[in-house]
Design a protein around this nucleic acid. Structure first.
Lengths: 185, 185
DNA sequence: ACCTGAACACCGTTCAAGT
DNA sequence: ACCTGAACACCGTTCAAGT
């Protein structure tokens, strides 16, 4: 990439971050281009898809997340590791409004720029769950797909303004369910 | 309403049902008008908001749902009643793609045509949960808001193509978590 | 190489004009 | 009363033309 193009790219990404932080994942591409003082066509050549833009925007966070999963797989006690993983995912999911919807959609089609990241989160979840199950620290009647679905659903829920106030509690509920903890009745 | 208007209204609703069944909750209003062979402005006078259209489209289902909750509150064993209620909600949530997103959004603003229905589902959930808790058939560490959030998140999840195959299992997982059932580990 | 204006086909909103 | 075409301000896509 030429130096001037690189500078343009970085500038656009910087502005996009701000706009998306404000308006969420369905922010107008035109609006982003406008605020970056760049033609819409230019924005779309750097990021042909909304997903491409998000991939660039999230790659730091996503790398940190998957690296964290690798650490958790070896360091912590299996049950704690799983609980921490869910909490980390939720923190990531809160990075931008609508990110979870996007990930859930990307999860379906391999053509998406976010597909690989989704698959990574999915499989990391599967490994951490299996490890916890082997240690008797998680309920047996679920698999990696189920965990990923629950984590995504949880991320979606706390993204909703009406459910956000109970976010911490909802995370605790799901986590305790996954760990198969005995609860007071 | 005049007879010709009534006929128009019913026809539009009929066509809308088909289009939304095919394209989900974010079907184009213009497309609905076009297929109903009616001006877009006519459609929008009958249903000024997308929510208004959905309210009309869903009112039968929603009435059945809330009536069912009233029956469950007195007839079934508290735990079974709660489990059945969750299952009924999930069935409703599957009526049209995207309905849950809409309900979750409507839940926040009292101006929405779907607000009352959301509130009804919310409060019915609270009553059925409280009844189950009083009978020692549900976990104590959650309230009606939490249950509604979990039910909605569950509805959202099974609406996603990638999670749909595990729908039944996901319902079972959430239900067993809410009931505080002891699980094999 | 890199950028961009402009045309395109969409969307929902609004309203003056028609029956 | 009820309907509707048309103008409006948006959206993302595409591409020929400019530096």
């Amino acid at each position: 990439m030429r130096a001037d193009a690189k500078k343009n790219y970085d500038h656009i990404l910087d502005i996009a971050r701000g706009v998306i932080a404000g308006h969420g994942s369905d922010a107008s591409m035109r609006d982003i281009a406008r605020r970056a003082e760049v033609g819409l066509a230019t924005l779309l050549r750097h990021f042909p898809t909304r997903e491409t833009l998000f991939e660039a925007l999230l790659c730091t966070n996503l790398d940190a997340l998957t690296q964290k999963s690798a650490e958790l797989e070896v360091s912590n006690a299996p049950g704690d590791a799983l609980a921490t993983w869910v909490a980390d995912w939720v923190a990531f999911a809160g990075s931008y409004k609508g990110v979870v919807d996007m990930m859930a959609a990307a999860h379906t089609n391999p053509g998406s720029a976010l597909y690989a990241s989704c698959a990574a989160v999915h499989s990391a979840s599967g490994r951490l769950l299996a490890r916890a199950q082997a240690a008797g620290a998680a309920r047996e009647d679920m698999n990696g797909d189920d965990l990923f679905a629950l984590m995504t659903a949880l991320g979606w829920a706390i993204d909703q303004p009406s459910f956000a106030p109970r976010a911490d509690h909802l995370v605790r509920l799901i986590t305790s369910a996954v760990l198969g903890e005995t609860v007071g009745k």
